[in-house]
Amino acid sequence: MATGPDHPAGGTDIEVQRLQRLFRFFAATQCRGRSPVYETLSEGIADDDTLLDLLMATPGEQRRPSLLFAAVNLLLASDPGSALADYYPTHGGRRPVDGLLVPTFAAFCAEHRDELTRLLRSRSTQTNEIRRCVALRLGLDHVHRLWPGPLALVEAGASAGLNLLVDRYRYRVGGQEASSAVASPVTITCEVRGSAPAGQILGPVTEITRRLGIDRHPVDLADPIARAWLEAFIWPEQAGDLATLRGAIDLAVSAPAVTVVQGDATADTARLLGELPGREPVVVFTATLLSYLDADARTAFVAQIEQAAARRPVAWVFAEAPGLVASADQGLAALTGPLAQRNSLFLVGASLRGPGRRDDALLAMADPYLRWLAPARHETDDFQWLPAHANAG
């Protein structure tokens, strides 16, 4: 492991320091309590010039921990006999994290450096975290209470569009079965934090008239290479999540009901919503979309929602970092205080917009991967009752 004073050749001191902070932040806010493998690797990469150099040789927008880990995971799937695979339960490994994990990871990256460089330069982040459907259902319930009747559903940043099948899954929230319109081979689980009765969190499934996904690089589920890349974003310890993802993919392929079109959420959303037939309200769902947009792009996305809402009712349901929601023109009183700084968690909310109408609602705080959900106690809840270490459980 190289830890000398010289920075990696591919970047300036400032760029490398930014990347080191990103990996340490990723370890502390995303991995701790969820993935000992990725937490240990993230801390190790931050101190390893050779591994940092692998990322510094790629364009700036590609320098993401999740992209590096997915690229390695993809190669591991075709090399299950590798020593590194021993640490990955998703590849049959049973070895606990120890002092050899980071050197083993570094050796694997050195052996596959050319392949990893190609993947890091050419591939984009593609995830379909099915648990986020819990946030979507919470938002759909809220919208349906204010706008009774059928709804059209659009997801911006839809990837393979699996979240658009929100009403085709079963749900166990807080250990209790939630109401579902259909039997399903896929069950989504989510813990509940706070005092809300688990059985009252999700209401009856809303009727969805049509479904549309928007993504810059839609995933073709008929393409085994695309499916493998989607699976590569499942974390090492999450064998159950991998099974859930595969079940959702099989469901989508066997009963196609979703169209995902290529488009830019910041430029094409209003046009695509305008092309939807019917006059029923449209729910636009985003989860982590804002983290991929700079300040100008976030403003442009909100403008797309407002433009579409001038023609028919549009509700934006989101599961996003609170600080990014606050910067996206959301009129939530709770975001004027410390809540906007809790960006290791997700804020779940809804913004209903139509001609002469706007209604912003705070619904919950959640783990970014919806392992747990904490329903809001009132409309100005700042969630100070939720421990600062809430994401570690």
Score class of each variant (00 low, 15 high):
residue 63 R to C: 01
residue 20 Q to V: 14
residue 388 A to I: 10
residue 84 L to S: 08
residue 354 G to M: 03
residue 9 A to Y: 04
residue 223 D to A: 03
residue 80 P to C: 09
residue 381 D to M: 10
residue 179 S to Y: 12
residue 243 A to S: 09
residue 343 N to A: 11
residue 351 S to P: 00
residue 187 T to M: 08
residue 357 R to F: 09
residue 219 V to R: 00
residue 12 T to K: 00
residue 80 P to A: 10
residue 197 P to A: 13
residue 49 D to T: 15
residue 249 I to H: 06
residue 150 P to E: 06
residue 161 G to E: 02
residue 132 R to M: 00
residue 26 F to E: 08
residue 182 V to T: 09
residue 79 D to I: 03
residue 328 A to Q: 03
residue 86 D to A: 13
residue 1 M to C: 02
residue 370 L to M: 12
residue 203 G to S: 13
residue 251 L to K: 09
residue 372 W to R: 11
residue 88 Y to V: 01
residue 369 Y to K: 13
residue 346 F to A: 14
residue 74 L to E: 11
residue 386 L to G: 00
residue 9 A to L: 14
residue 349 G to L: 04
residue 261 V to F: 03
residue 390 A to M: 09
residue 232 A to D: 04
residue 108 F to D: 14
residue 28 A to F: 01
residue 335 L to T: 00
residue 82 S to L: 05
residue 389 H to E: 14
residue 106 A to V: 08
residue 138 L to E: 07
residue 79 D to T: 13
residue 30 Q to F: 13
residue 129 E to G: 08
residue 227 R to Q: 11
residue 149 G to W: 01
residue 99 G to Y: 15
residue 192 V to N: 08
residue 331 G to A: 12
residue 200 Q to F: 02
residue 62 Q to L: 13
residue 353 R to K: 04
residue 252 A to D: 06
residue 213 G to W: 04
residue 230 L to H: 08
residue 329 D to I: 00
residue 194 G to R: 02
residue 12 T to R: 03
residue 355 P to F: 07
residue 154 V to M: 02
residue 218 P to D: 09
residue 196 A to W: 08
residue 78 S to Q: 13
residue 135 A to I: 01
residue 52 L to N: 06
residue 2 A to C: 14
residue 27 A to G: 08
residue 188 I to G: 01
residue 352 L to A: 11
residue 371 R to V: 12
residue 43 E to H: 15
residue 139 G to L: 13
residue 305 I to L: 13
residue 313 P to C: 08
residue 262 Q to H: 09
residue 393 G to H: 14
residue 220 D to K: 07
residue 322 P to Y: 12
residue 7 H to R: 10
residue 156 A to V: 03
residue 104 T to Y: 10
residue 155 E to Q: 05
residue 27 A to D: 10
residue 293 L to V: 00
residue 52 L to W: 09
residue 191 E to S: 11
residue 37 V to D: 04
residue 294 D to K: 00
residue 45 I to N: 05
residue 3 T to C: 13
residue 112 H to L: 04
residue 343 N to D: 14
residue 302 V to D: 10
residue 241 D to C: 09
residue 179 S to I: 10
residue 67 L to H: 05
residue 318 F to P: 06
residue 115 E to I: 02
residue 204 P to A: 15
residue 103 P to A: 01
residue 31 C to Q: 01
residue 310 A to I: 03
residue 257 A to W: 05
residue 211 R to I: 07
residue 373 L to V: 04
residue 5 P to A: 06
residue 109 C to P: 01
residue 325 V to F: 09
residue 360 D to T: 06
residue 79 D to N: 07
residue 40 T to N: 05
residue 248 A to D: 01
residue 374 A to D: 04
residue 131 R to A: 11
residue 54 L to S: 01
residue 305 I to Y: 03
residue 253 V to T: 14
residue 114 D to I: 15
residue 203 G to L: 12
residue 23 F to C: 05
residue 332 L to K: 07
residue 40 T to V: 08
